[in-house]
Write a protein that binds this DNA or RNA. Structure first.
Lengths: 215, 215
DNA sequence: GTCAACATTATTGTATGCAAAAATATATAA
DNA sequence: TTATATATTTTTGCATACAATAATGTTGAC
């Protein structure tokens, strides 16, 4: 385990940022945070550096660290990038996944469907993440898989929203089936294409939501 | 400009790591570095955090920070990921690049060819980077472009090596032509495919080199 | 000579102090 | 009153001090 307080603080801050505790552009006051966490400024500063390097905050020299919630444009860009990363994983996974990998993917897919039948959104959500993570690993490229995992993590909070769309979960399951069969057949192009679409549509749903809110 | 010493130190350390100044697994001694840079441990520690978050070093709590030169396997993975990122950029750029963008791309390509005629490897090298960066920007997705730029930066030192292969530069220029025409024609799939191949072959050349050294 | 237990040293992680820069408040002139 | 100059306060960035843990060395039993 990680007994460094700075890292624990970084994790906590990350959670707080994700949960929208901070406004966009808000300055993260070192002294206040130090008081809140009952530590000195030093571990706080380290934690802030972590946020900055992950892109969740921006540092302006001699000014401070400001949290940067991604706006609609950047979010769309991130979803688009996620779609391309997943497509890349799918392309490689189609060639490289073992039968065992495919079996556990089918398994994860079943658990997704079960969660929908139970109308258990939370479970669907985590099982869906598992489904995708199996594909990342199936690409047999640790570096690429880590990139995908990182972005998946950053988009988690936003992906949740689009599940509320009517019929989205059923449609999503259809897409999963297509993805699963493409991977099973070893069809790299098809796997890439279906995965790209599957993820890209999440960005579009998100876009719709934003647009509807701004009306 | 950036007047924070810690960041300057991070940049310098980055250069030193790239230039192979440090052995793989070597511990970065905070006190030694503090003496070398004539600063206290504090800015050194900040700089080390930067290296860690960029993946160039690993931090083990209560032990220290150890530099991590990527081995052959990880390098291949990175090249493969780069190939997929560039393919993604190409796919989007084919649809989104303006005529002006295309003109500057053709221009960069010409300068690459000129550099080859002049047998100026260094110039070819930088002009080639420009060529690719224009495509990143052409994707009109800042987030994706930044991902690509980051990885391009990390692979810089290793990409250089493969240029030594006989005929590689000419072949590379042929590939550039194909890429340019695919983008000009707005053929997304072709752009993605040619770019993927163009970058992936660099990884393969690198692999050949490694293999030949280990004989 | 080898191994284990203990003492010593080195190194990391955190707290605190201080200087420089930025932000803010105050005073003064127009 | 507004604008500008100056003083005051905040806040960052770095230096130093200290505590806790890990690494190393030493001693003694076998």
């Amino acid at each position: 385990m990680d007994i460094r307080r700075a890292n624990q603080i970084a994790n906590t801050l990350e959670q707080l940022v994700f949960s929208g505790e901070f406004q966009d552009g808000e300055r993260l006051d070192e002294l206040k945070l130090a008081e809140q966490f009952h530590v000195s400024r030093t571990p706080i500063r380290e934690a802030l550096q972590v946020l900055v390097s992950s892109g969740m905050a921006e540092q302006i020299p001699r000014r401070g660290v400001f949290i940067r919630q991604p706006g609609p444009v950047e979010l769309m860009e991130m979803f688009e990038t996620m779609a391309e990363l997943e497509a890349a994983c799918g392309r490689l996974a189609a060639i490289r996944m073992s039968d065992k990998d495919l079996a556990s993917l089918a398994n994860a897919n079943d658990r997704c469907q079960q969660a929908i039948r139970d109308t258990n959104h939370d479970r669907y959500y985590t099982e869906n993440e598992t489904f995708h993570q199996i594909i990342y690993r199936g690409a047999a490229n640790t570096f690429l898989a880590n990139q995908a995992l990182q972005l998946q993590n950053r988009l988690r909070a936003y992906r949740r929203i689009q599940l509320r769309f009517r019929g989205r979960m059923d449609q999503s399951m259809n897409e999963h089936s297509q993805i699963l069969s493409a991977l099973t057949n070893g069809d790299a192009d098809m796997a890439a294409q279906t995965l790209r679409g599957h993820v890209a549509i999440q960005g579009e749903k998100f876009h719709q939501l934003i647009a509807s809110l701004n009306r």
